[in-house]
Design a binder for these strands. Sequence first.
DNA 1: GAAATTTGACCAAG
DNA 2: CTTGGTCAAATTTC
Length: 291
Amino acid sequence: MVMKEEMLMEEKLVINELEQGKELANQLMNNLKFPSSSELDMSLISGILRSYENAIVMLSLDQKTLKRSSPERIDQSNKKRRTSEKKMSEKVKICVGTGQEGTSLDDGYCWRKYGQKVIHGSKNPRGYYRCTHRFTRGCLAVKQVQKSDADPSCYEVKYLESHTCKANLSTTKFSVSVPKDEPKRVHVTEQSVDIIKHMKSEEMMLNLDDLENKKDIFRTFSFSYPETENIPEWKNLMDNLSPTTTSESGITNELLYTSSSSVSVANSPTADSCFSSLESILDLSHVWSLM
DNA sequence: GAAATTTGACCAAG
DNA sequence: CTTGGTCAAATTTC
């Protein structure tokens, strides 16, 4: 594929980000071959992830822009925002195909179901959940979970209001938790991406359903250590893994989590898995560099 | 027995 | 009146 002469600004930025990621990955690879500093490794990984995250966001925004010609979606979005002004903190559509019938929609937070409703036009009922710490910590986070009609293995999750319970416990902005009873899994939750903060909220009405790359990347990096919360670099890393954005800006975002059939998030991580993940990135960036 | 879930009732918005 | 969201009593689970 030959590059277009008139490349969009967004495309240049994306490529730039990916090239940065590739460079960092190469550095990391060298560093792993001749180990010197694990801190350096971590910062490199962090940089790589940030690079890809930014590229993904740019791509998704670009696609959104292209979809503008479809008034339907925009109208719906605007209507949604108008009618739910008081609660417009965050709406995240998450599809999780885990085969565990909804109970496994574990995003690292503790939720208490407080209602269920049949939604007309939908085959499946919608469950209403609020943060378990609503009363103890005054956390107003709420989410709605509904099994997708189109794909029963997917769940659509809307997040309304962001968690304040964990923010109260930590001054850092990341939000990753690993429940004691499930130490093998990292739960990545919503987090802001700097680039997004500077964008118009309308542009954030994203639909990343068609963003296949994103889910692959998240799947690739679904590894964890139970002790990650004690390691600052891991916090940064997880920060960069955030599947959603816009905790504070009242923006709608949609994501697609995919069933983890190929890379198991439950498996203990090893250096090998890290390596294979990195090689995935290298491969990916290699492909991109050819475009 | 405490915590979580279920489910019908209630309420506000359109 | 219909619909989606929440409440709260009843029930279940641990």
